[in-house]
Design a protein around this nucleic acid. Structure first.
Lengths: 131, 131
DNA sequence: TCTTGACCTTCCAGTGACTGGAACCTCTAT
DNA sequence: ATAGAGGTTCCAGTCACTGGAAGGTCAAGA
């Protein structure tokens, strides 16, 4: 199977798949003409990568998860550890963003948003008049 | 004032301040020895940048906000527009991360995390057995 | 048979917002 | 005189792609 078919099945752009080959995440065969030839296993691994990336795992985490996925004698504890660490990071990010949102929505609510210059948003960011 | 004092007052690393000068966000004077010399206004602007960055605004948004901050005849509507757009983006990110967290925490809860290979996390990511 | 157009290939550069490090200069205190 | 703490520039690396150029390959139609 050529790259664009593999891309369609895995739900990844061809460019991304080439990049994944570059960094050693997948190793498709080559046809005599030099075209990449993707097996079902390759496509399966690409799908796995697409899903784990969609869950926010970094490339290196995906690499580790893929190795565990292919190791049929793995301990699920190893997988769970990676997932828990990632979950904590997601939760930290949510907290950070929520704090930003709260501050910002408060400022936006207090800004008239008309043609006058007075602006609590700028005042807050300049540290002049904490809202 | 030298860069490390300005950095301490603005709450930014000196490296970041040099970078901000590179991209034209600040333009401190220079002493005869070539050292940057930060005025109170420079420090004020750097503080403004530190705060707006902390609220998640991009550098280009910060550039626009800083210009509005310095334009005493601005219309607050312009500021509010930038802030509202950014707020929407933050909310989108929170939604994305929350969806990830929900999926992932569900998977983690269902994984034994012992020395056996069975793992609903990997099963889900491989698309074999949606949990 | 020739050509067209859709594929495929590699390689290089750019993204955002810094950050680390090397090589070198300047100031202050001893 | 020297040591050490500052300052300077410039180059490269981060992360995960993405865009584009230049060129090779293939299948279908005139």
């Amino acid at each position: 199977m050529n790259i664009s078919d593999a891309a369609a099945r895995a739900g990844l752009p061809p460019k991304t798949i080439r990049y994944y080959e570059d960094i050693g995440l997948v190793t498709p065969d080559r046809d005599p003409n030099g075209y990449r030839s993707f097996s079902d296993v390759d496509v399966h691994n690409l799908t796995f990568l697409a899903r784990s990336r969609a869950l926010g795992f970094s490339i290196e985490e995906c690499r580790a998860l893929l190795a565990l996925y292919e190791d049929k004698s793995r301990a699920s504890a190893e997988v769970k550890k990676i997932a828990e660490d990632h979950l904590e990071e997601i939760e930290r990010k949510i907290e950070d963003l929520t704090a930003m949102r709260d501050t910002l929505s408060h400022l936006v609510r207090n800004c008239h948003g008309d043609d006058r210059p007075e602006c609590p948003i700028l005042d807050n960011m300049s540290g002049e008049r904490p809202v």
